[in-house]
């Protein structure tokens, strides 16, 4: 099932994110996803997230699909050139993976193999363009594909609380031009900023899923403010997380804060994208509290 069909039907689409392991055992990941995420629409599988080497996104997607979930293949341009990316896309289609999220990817220097060659032969925009070419039955060089062309729900990302929001909107427009059909956002903690962003982004006419992270502690919030691009946790949230450490540690504060953001932003977005970061077990509770 392509998730664009759900957006087209006016459904509020909830996705979450899982990261493949640095190893070959995925039972735990699949069990966790089955237990906590089977109530949501689809599960993103990250592609060597933060440039840290792990098992590939595609095999993990297949394992999740076999377990009855709907995976979304994240595809970055950091590690593969245009030949390898197209090859991966054909493989995904053959294996029945038809939801994708196209990203440029973090730089190799950010991860655990900082000496690796950063590829970036394509970027998120030209990757989306490439997918559209494949869907037309030709590759990026114009050579015809044999047989039926693949068809994907083509997603992209945008960062609504970035301090260069104009550049983000310009890039979003280029992604739409290149074929993006839906957007997932970087984590939002400031509803007002998101609503202002959506005032401008709605002109593109594409569904946008609000990015959600459950804040775990004041320390985590401060760390993200210092180090994570496009993320800003307001001071009042940090104070609240710091006020009752036990409550924050139990996840109660974080779930309350995330639910508040979701409620405030819900009228302005078409879905949620939850980055649980190990707190997958709290996702059902969060959705309940947010009234989803």
């Amino acid at each position: 099932m392509r998730i664009t069909e759900l957006f087209d039907n006016g459904e509020f689409v909830v996705t979450a994110e899982v990261g493949p392991p640095k190893g070959i055992h995925v039972d735990h990941l699949v069990e966790e996803a089955k237990e906590h995420l089977s109530g949501i629409t689809a599960v993103n599988v990250t592609d060597n997230q933060s440039s840290v080497m792990r098992m590939g996104s595609l095999p993990t997607c297949v394992l999740l699909k076999n377990a009855g979930l709907t995976p979304i293949l994240q595809l970055t341009c950091r590690d593969r050139n245009r030949i390898a990316l197209q090859s991966e896309l054909l493989g995904a289609a053959a294996l029945g993976i038809d939801n994708i999220l196209c990203l440029t990817g973090d730089h190799t220097r950010m991860g655990d193999h900082p000496g690796a060659k950063p590829v970036f032969d394509l970027d998120s925009v030209s990757l989306l363009h490439t997918v559209c070419q494949l869907e037309k039955g030709v590759d990026l060089a114009g050579n015809p594909l044999v047989g039926e062309a693949p068809k994907f729900a083509k997603g992209a990302v945008v960062s609504p609380c970035s301090d260069s929001v104009d550049a983000q909107l310009a890039k979003m427009e280029r992604k739409v031009m290149a074929g993006a059909e839906y957007f997932q956002t970087q984590a939002v903690f400031d509803s007002e900023k998101f609503i202002q962003f959506m005032e401008q982004a709605k002109q593109f006419g594409k569904p946008v899923q609000l990015g959600v992270i459950i804040p775990k502690s004041a320390g985590m919030a401060k760390f993200m403010n210092k180090n994570v691009a496009g993320v800003h946790v307001p001071q009042w949230m940090i104070d609240e997380l710091a006020a009752d450490k036990e409550k924050a540690k139990a996840g109660i504060t974080g779930v309350e804060l995330a639910a508040k953001v979701i409620k405030e932003c819900r009228p302005y977005c078409q879905g949620l994208h939850i980055m649980a970061l190990g707190w997958e077990a709290k996702v059902p509770e969060l959705l309940k509290l947010a009234g989803i």
Binding site: T104, D106, H107, M110, D123, S124, V125, S126, V157, V158, S159, S162, D163, S164, A167, Q168, A170, K171, R174, A178, Q186, N227, V228, A229, G230
Partner: peptide, 8 residues
Amino acid sequence: NGQCGGAK
């Protein structure tokens, strides 16, 4: 083709 999401 434009800015990535990595600027802070």
